[in-house]
Simulated scan of single mutants.
Amino acid sequence: AYFRQGVALQYLGRHADALAAFASGLAQDPKSLQLLVGMVEAAMKSPMRESLEPTYQQLQKMKLDKSPFVVVSVIGQELLTASHHGASVVVLEAALKIGTCSLKLRGSVFSALSSAYWSLGNTEKSIGYMQQDLDVAKTLGDQTGECRAHGNLGSAFFSKGNYREALTNHRHQLVLAMKLKDREV
């Protein structure tokens, strides 16, 4: 059903919605080659082809073009870049349902979801994904990622008027930036 929905939406010119349908199907059945191929074909027939094709060629070289998590998360991030925020949320959350053992890749999806929800005006969901992104960065020992996540959280809490949390996160960001000798941050 998801495959047929994706094809129908694609023919209607609703490319972002078509990609969301394929991704939703893959979240239910990650081993479906039909859904994966359909999603890639739909992406390559969409207005995102120009920006997506070089990335997809790299995935082919690394033999990651058959990984549902990788393909779905890459397409989700492209949708986000193209300002299809609603569809990007559906696709990126489908990637999380598909799952991966790579913390770094999962962290990338958390970060993208926080941006998508922020753009949609859903601050609570955005903060939730920012915190998950921070947890992953800490687990990986990625101080640059921690610094970025603390900065995002500080800004988000500030926008909500939660100045204590904002200050705490910006202080953490400052300490990490000083450790990293990152004068720009």
Rank of each mutant, 00 (worst) to 15 (best):
D17H: 04
E41Y: 01
F69Y: 10
G107C: 04
S88L: 01
E184K: 12
G145I: 11
T100K: 02
L176D: 03
S67V: 07
E124H: 08
L167M: 14
N122D: 14
L103G: 07
F22H: 10
I127G: 02
A149Y: 13
Q131C: 09
G121T: 15
M48W: 12
L120A: 11
M62D: 13
L9K: 06
E78K: 14
S46T: 05
F158S: 02
S155A: 03
K63I: 07
A1Y: 12
K61Q: 13
A95H: 03
L174K: 13
M62C: 01
Q34H: 11
H15I: 02
A116R: 12
K160Q: 15
D182F: 00
R49T: 13
Q28T: 10
Q132R: 13
A1V: 13
Y117W: 09
G161I: 07
G86Y: 07
G13V: 04
K66H: 12
L52H: 06
S114N: 00
Q132N: 15
G25A: 08
P54L: 03
K31Y: 15
Y56E: 02
H170E: 07
H172C: 09
L26Q: 11
F69S: 03
L174W: 05
Q143M: 09
L180D: 01
Y11G: 00
D65K: 08
M62E: 15
